[in-house]
């Protein structure tokens, strides 16, 4: 066992345990916090694959921004056990089926990915996730999809502004 192997197994177990805790904790705030722990573990895996940029962006975007918004919503709604809406059996069944399908797809993907089957870590070797490689790929080979996705963000931003804008008719009345 060298250092990276210990880190790999530690991070993997942390990720799995936290992911299970996300599902089984009753309090939604606890779920969000465990989800943040999952993101941290996955960022650790990115670092082991020498993809520092991905690791940090994962932390900034998911753990730093999206999860804060999740917490915002949950805290303002103040969900607790008594007021937790009772879910319908059919919804539960549908959830289980779709979740199972997703799991199947993921497992088959992992089985097909021969390249990573034998590898655990690429510390100091891999270069896919480095900022230079990523920037070059994004702005040469994939520049059109990249720009199109920015249009998507712009439309989302405009939508948010429209929703957030005060209705002048309501104020006058």
């Amino acid at each position: 066992m060298n250092l990276v192997e210990i880190a790999f197994w530690g991070l993997s177990s942390l990720a799995i345990i936290s992911a299970i805790m996300v599902l089984i904790s009753k309090n939604p705030v606890h779920s969000v916090l465990w989800l943040i722990a999952v993101f941290f573990a996955i960022s650790g895996h990115y670092i082991l694959l020498n993809a520092q940029f991905l690791a940090i962006v994962n932390l900034i975007v998911y753990a730093g921004a999206i999860m804060v918004l999740f917490l915002f919503v949950i805290m303002l709604m103040n969900l607790n056990k008594e007021r937790d809406p009772q879910k319908n059996v059919w919804i539960k069944l549908a959830g289980a089926v779709s979740g199972g399908c997703l799991l199947m797809v993921l497992v088959s993907l992992v089985k097909q990915a021969n390249e990573v089957n034998t590898k655990q870590v690429e510390m100091g070797i891999g270069h896919i996730g480095l900022i230079k490689t990523l920037g070059k790929v994004l702005f040469t080979d994939f520049v059109v999809p990249f720009e199109i996705s920015s249009v998507l963000f712009l439309s989302a931003m405009v939508g948010a502004v429209v929703i957030g804008k005060k209705d002048s008719k309501l104020e006058n009345n």
Partner: peptide, 25 residues
């Protein structure tokens, strides 16, 4: 001396919110 030091700082800054939010809630 990570080669994404600047972004690391940014990530840590965005983590700082949690202490306050969780404590307050």
């Amino acid at each position: 001396d990570v080669n994404v030091g600047l972004l690391y700082i940014f990530a840590v800054v965005s983590m700082g919110v949690y202490g306050v939010m969780i404590g307050g809630w």
